[in-house]
């Protein structure tokens, strides 16, 4: 576990944690999803607020309840809601489908094991090597992280690369992450796991092709 001490230093040179500043394809598609949903939400909010305010101003011509129900309940309540939600659901499902860890020729496999309050990473391509709180990946290639826990529930999250997935004792969850460019990305545990929760962080080091080859050969720790 000699890697532990160096990794702490690397966390110091922290990047950003922003969901809306993506640095990989998964995080980017989710950020786009967010902006689309925000625009839609603001439009709906303005519409609903406008209708409420207008109720105090506009005097509608006298009409029966049956007609009003047709407009307000069937038209807006059912018709409008269902249309918007169906569109969003289709978009969301399609976006989710793209995030799934599908088989591909250049996929790199690593494993992440959480405990209170440390992450240990192992590499299929470099058997026997363990790094603590620092995950090495190649940039520009999809990486499948097999996530599990030896004690309580944790969650593996690198906000600028992808969403999060839980580390659950007895189960292994696979998350697809990818970094566009070499660099260091901050990672967090995102499920409350006791008093060391805040400090339970890690870093992801994305290497260029040579750097990654050097790591696999063992010339970098």
């Amino acid at each position: 576990m000699a890697a532990g001490s160096t990794s702490i230093l690397l966390i110091g040179c922290s990047g950003d944690l922003s969901i809306v500043d993506p640095a990989g394809p998964a995080a980017r598609s989710i950020a786009t999803l967010w902006w689309v949903m925000l625009a839609g939400a603001v439009a709906i909010l303005v519409m609903v607020t406008g209708l409420v305010v207008a109720a105090f101003r506009v005097r509608q011509p006298v009409a029966g309840d049956a007609r009003r129900e047709k407009i307000w309940i069937i038209g807006l309540g059912l018709g409008f809601s269902m249309t918007v939600l169906a569109a969003l659901l289709a978009y969301g499902l399609a976006a989710g489908e793209r995030l799934m860890p599908r088989a591909a020729p250049d996929v790199v496999r690593v494993a992440a094991e959480a405990r209170q309050w440390e992450w240990r990473f192992t590499y299929d391509d470099r058997p026997g090597h363990v790094t603590a709180n620092l995950l090495h990946i190649p940039a520009g290639r999809p990486v499948d992280v097999a996530i599990t826990s030896v004690d309580v529930v944790h969650s593996f999250w690198v906000p600028r690369l992808a969403g999060k997935l839980d580390a659950i004792p007895g189960h292994v969850n696979v998350l697809r992450i990818e970094a566009d460019l070499p660099g260091t990305y901050r990672g967090l545990t995102a499920e409350y796991n006791g008093e060391g929760y805040r400090g339970h962080v890690f870093a992801v080091q994305a290497h260029d092709a040579e750097g990654w080859a050097a790591f696999l050969e063992g010339s970098t720790p």
Partner: peptide
């Protein structure tokens, strides 16, 4: 928004 799975993966917790 959070009912949409990909966004929830980011926003959760």
């Amino acid at each position: 928004m959070v009912a949409v799975v990909p966004f929830d993966w980011q926003a959760h917790d």
